[in-house]
């Protein structure tokens, strides 16, 4: 049965390939530091489960220093000469969309098929979507190589080029998720819940609703993740204030409360995979360009959510 471990091997192998391609490139401006970074990351994916966790932690610390202190840079890249690209574009035309659309297409197909026939035991049902995405990417990669008549090695060079364009932002979402778990282990959630429980006594219903909604959004801005904020804020404010004191419908409170958190996600650089990675992927000048584009929608929607919560939770 295909499990997450196999997917991690694939990802680790790609990272190791990027490391080797970097280390072999004498013209690379950060040859050894970049190479070391991708080698460590690949090792964590392939043999991470067998290493003592403190060693993994030390590797993470090293990678963060390499990435944070400018150790990742773009190496030289040989683009296809204009004329060859034009010939290729004429030959392929709309077929170029096929591999790109094959990624979601195959993912969807695999999710549906494997969901229909769980008895096959081909995919670990707990991670069906992720595994389907992995297999879909392998298939789409084969189609892309076939159509463009490129070698898998060129595919590795392309992955390296795009990873270099993303730079340190690639590590950020993973590191933030790690920070969230470290916060949990250090009991940050309980402290916030205790503080808000002790110091916020709100008797008016609308004030209680607004406090819960704004706290969900605000704490999500800090944590970068509404899932991390939900248990803390719901335990600290939602249950004692809205449910116990004002008799709110818990399903409504949870649904709209989580959406208030999502409004916070749209506003924070801590949600790096949504807000910072695309800035790097699209080559935007302003680090916060995506957040600025989202902010009006997020703020209006947060206000709408407060009204909805006040109107729907006490029917």
């Amino acid at each position: 049965m295909l499990t997450l471990t196999h997917l991690y091997w694939l990802v680790g192998a790609i990272m190791a390939l990027v490391a080797v391609l970097t280390l072999l490139d004498a013209q690379h401006p950060r040859r050894f530091r970049s190479g070391l970074f991708w080698l460590s990351y690949g090792a964590i994916f392939i043999v991470g489960d067998y290493l003592p966790t403190a060693v993994v932690g030390a590797l993470v610390l090293g990678m963060a220093l390499l990435a944070g202190l400018g150790g990742l840079a773009a190496g030289p890249y040989q683009a296809l000469p204009d004329q060859l690209q034009r010939v290729s574009l004429e030959r392929l035309g709309k077929k170029l969309f096929v591999p790109a659309l094959a990624i979601p297409g195959f993912t969807l197909l695999l999710v549906l098929i494997m969901g229909q026939f769980p008895a096959l035991h081909w995919f670990d049902p707990k991670n069906l979507t992720l595994l389907s995405l992995g297999v879909a990417c392998v298939l789409a990669f084969a189609i892309a190589c076939y159509l463009t008549r490129e070698s898998p090695r060129q595919g590795g060079l392309e992955a390296k080029r795009l990873l270099e364009a993303i730079g340190w932002a690639f590590l950020l979402p993973h590191l933030l998720a790690t920070l969230g778990l470290v916060f949990n282990q250090a009991g940050v959630g309980q402290i916030i819940a205790a503080l808000s429980h002790d110091y916020l006594q709100l008797d008016s219903r609308l004030a209680a609703v607004a406090a819960y909604a704004l706290a969900m959004a605000g704490f999500t801005v800090i944590m970068g993740n509404a899932f991390a904020a939900f248990p803390v804020i719901t335990a600290g404010l939602g249950i004692p204030l809205l449910i116990q004191q004002h008799d709110a419908n818990p399903a409504v409170m949870a649904a709209i409360g989580m959406f208030c958190g999502y409004c916070g996600t749209l506003l924070t650089p801590m949600a790096a995979n949504f807000n910072i990675v695309p800035v790097a992927l699209l080559g935007l000048k302003d680090q916060h360009a995506v957040i600025k584009a989202q902010a009006p929608t997020a703020l209006i929607l947060l206000a709408v959510n407060i009204v909805l919560l006040d109107q729907l939770a006490f029917l």
Binding site: V56, G155, L181
Partner: peptide
């Protein structure tokens, strides 16, 4: 704690990394 958390959240970069080779080509 950092290492363990990092290992647990490894699925995050997977989604970002896997399509890159295809899109790059």
């Amino acid at each position: 704690a950092i290492g363990e958390s990092f290992l647990k959240t490894r699925s995050l970069p997977v989604i970002l990394l896997l399509p890159l080779a295809i899109i790059g080509l």
